[in-house]
Amino acid sequence: MGILDTSPRVRAAALVAPPFLYALALLAFPLIAIIVISFWTQSGLALNRVFTLENYREIFSSPIYVWGNANRWGVLPLSLFVSATVTLVTVVLAYPIAYFVSFVVAPERKALWLFLITIPFWTSYLIRVFLWKVILGFNGVVNTGLQSLGVIEEPLSVLLYNLNSVIITLSHAYAVFAILPIYVALEKIDRSLLEASQDLGESRFSTFLRVTLPLSVPGIVGAVLIVFIPTIGDYVTPELMLGSGGRLMSNVIQTQFLQLNNWPLGAALSIITMLAVGIVSLVFILLNRRWLRGRA
């Protein structure tokens, strides 16, 4: 106890050690295991632990995973496209909501609005996905409503079991994760800057473009990363909303691990996906920094 009482470094190490060991056990060790397994091969039900690049050769030589062919995208670029589209749709729809709560709603009612925004996310994620199946189904709410209004004669078949349904469901599922960081960034903006801009003759719209939007970029960047990174690994939504017509990378990885019992190939696919997401995120962050530096 005497050492702990007199040494700040020891006290700091004692405080940091539990979360560090916890993160090491739940994050670092599994990641290291996946990396190691990706260089093995599967021989029947047994793992061949001889170091090899065979799994990566198969991934980059097969038209299924990365490069695709003339008639079909590879699984990885298709997954990146879906995640990017979901991110774009989510952020574009989330920004007006965050702006309304931050600038229009009275300060004493903002907490209530944030509470109302988060209510749908109190229910199970799985239940929400099934509800979207009911809404978008052949005889679902959307088709039934459009038929009753006379807009369509036959139910639309493009709403479910395709990428459209995946994008719609994921956009709703991750909406709150885009609204909150944008709202926080908008709340940090000094309102006197907006008043000064309008006093200098700028319109409300030009003030938004030249002051509010640039100052809210950190929130937008946070929302983009928070939505883009997890959506590419989402397994439940593509499994339920795509049906048997196609699969995204998360479903292909799950198939390799649990159905085909090919852990090395599944691990290699996981590593390739993480690297692709990391590269895309890093490029986005660097472009954002360059844009901010250009405006400084």
Rank of each mutant, 00 (worst) to 15 (best):
H172P: 05
V184F: 09
S206A: 11
L163I: 09
S197K: 04
G201H: 08
V134I: 15
A175G: 03
V176F: 07
E239T: 06
L159A: 10
F130Q: 12
T212W: 06
G219K: 00
S216G: 10
T237K: 01
H172Q: 15
S250L: 08
P218S: 10
I168M: 15
S148R: 14
G145I: 01
H172Y: 15
V134N: 12
V151P: 04
E202D: 11
T237W: 02
L186G: 00
S192C: 08
L209M: 15
I167Q: 02
L240H: 07
F130V: 13
S203L: 12
R191V: 06
P238L: 07
P230K: 07
S250E: 06
I189V: 09
L131E: 02
V217N: 10
S244W: 14
I226L: 10
Q198H: 15
E202Q: 11
S216I: 04
L194E: 10
G137L: 05
P218L: 09
S165D: 03
I189W: 02
Q147E: 10
I179Q: 01
W132Q: 05
W132N: 05
A185T: 04
V236K: 04
T207I: 13
T212P: 06
R128P: 03
I232P: 00
V158M: 11
L163Y: 05
L193Q: 10
I167V: 15
V224L: 07
G246W: 03
G243F: 12
K188D: 14
